[in-house]
Design a protein around this nucleic acid. Sequence first.
RNA 1: GGCCCGUUCGUCUAAGGGUUAGGACACCACCCUUUCACGGUGGUGAUACGAGUUCGAAUCUCGUACGGGCUACCA
Length: 532
Amino acid sequence: MFLIIVFCQLSIAHCTLPIDCFLSLSPMSSTVRVRFAPSPTGGLHLGGVRTVLYNYLFAKQHGGDFIVRIEDTDQNRYAAGAEEYIFDCLKWAGLEPDESPYHGGEFGPYRQSERKAIYRRYAEQLVNDGHAYYAFDSTEDLEKMRLDHKTEQNPAPQYDNSIRMKMRNSLTLDADEVKILLDAGTNHVIRIRIPEHETLSFTDMIRGEVSFDTAVVDDKVLLKADGMPTYHLAVVVDDYLMKISHAFRGEEWLPSAPVHILLWKYLFGLENMPQWAHFPLILGPNGKLSKRDGAKYRFPVFAMNWTDPKTGELTEGFKEKGFLPGAFINLLALLGWNDGTDQEIFTKEELIEKFSIEKVHSGGAKFDYEKAKWFNHEYIKMTDPEALLEIYKDLLPSYFNNKDDAYKTAVFSLVKDRCHDITDLAEQSSFFFNTPETWDLSAVMPKWNEEKKNFFVDWANKLMELVGWDAQILEQSFKELATEKNIKPGELQLPLRIMLVGGKFGPPVFSIADLLGTKETIARINNALPIF
RNA sequence: GGCCCGUUCGUCUAAGGGUUAGGACACCACCCUUUCACGGUGGUGAUACGAGUUCGAAUCUCGUACGGGCUACCA
């Protein structure tokens, strides 16, 4: 309750005072602590980054701390390098935590695998208090149970109050027998004992009051046979121990909320439970967005490229696709949230100022790659060519490196307004680095004749003696010669473009010639002329 | 099947009882441009359905339909 009151006061204070002023005035602001708790099993998904973002924005807005806790309790799903990868992604996106395995903090360790003993203690406490029990059922026992109880009405039988008394556990076995099994080190798990008929509810910051009947909740495993906790136990214990004030996670967790509410009630008291918000899912064309959708519909789903260490399979990332971090964050922020105005482009600082959980949507949002590219386009347009070079030089094809930085920067300033991603960038800039080898002849041939050919022969000669070299001078000389030869300059521009570029695209043709330089421009004309 | 969450243009969304239901992406047309874009102007296009409450409902209530999530010793 205390935390809730403090938070309300902060919200009010924030409405009337500028952030920095409010921060300096209120030492209580450190009470906001949020966390992102990924499991290092593979690439970092769009939805994951959005969860990070909303956590981060909320924390920063309230002068609080953003914690990253690694939920590596499943050894079977462990993926080598995934943990470092996650932090690389956060760094790229500019969403770095205040506390994590790599960022220090008073509440470590921040890796659940390193907290194993802690969970066992709480699990035992629950058993002692009668809220949990030991279960000795083998995988085969469980399979058999599910098979035996499976009906059309109940296609997925659960280990719940209706069947727990038919299984091998410390509820059905004698105390002595249990002790013998335990002492012998028999494989066992600890399950929560869900009360039979209780209504559990909580107030979600986005959805309002949500309630559940425990009659349909099963006796979830809390501690696995290998001694590791499941998510359910670990999240409650760690959120308490790490003093998390607000717990945000994806909507897929909503159904397990009753288990967590019970755990809070039994272990730490409901009054200490963080405020919860369940974010809407990010949907693909068919339900929850998956990396499969990315592969199928050809758009990135992960923040950065991820190579599966077992299969070697590469899944594309937004970074490598040419997305700027600011654009990525911006588009993610707007996927499920807006500030109530028509504004769509926000800096990170603006997002920190304007974000609010209450304005996050409750319905899932279908990811639209076209809109995502539009955001990136907007950011590319407003980024300096020098900065673009810094960002893109490692991503662009190797041919790109055969020129100096000044040249590359000039290329960017010429082409950036027409680029949405790295593909555009490569396409729009490749002819600045490589002489065309094929030409779009269909664009020239219908109106091509000897006079025009002669024009280019003569113009190429004129270019060698030209005084000064810029787009304007080139255009002037071009038009003068055309007039002299009684040819409409407009009819010659497209052929020139095809000679220099190879196709019907790119920046203004004289700007291209300007950047290409005397030698290259003449070479390209002479190169193409025999073909035309 | 059960439980939970959701439903405004194709997509992301605004409108918190009274608006010609607004914006953006995409699409189309025109302008600019003797390339392709950028940019500008305009256009097509939505409150899932049915009851109820109300003078008045996209908005509140209920039902139906549809969509999604969960239903592991995964998170």
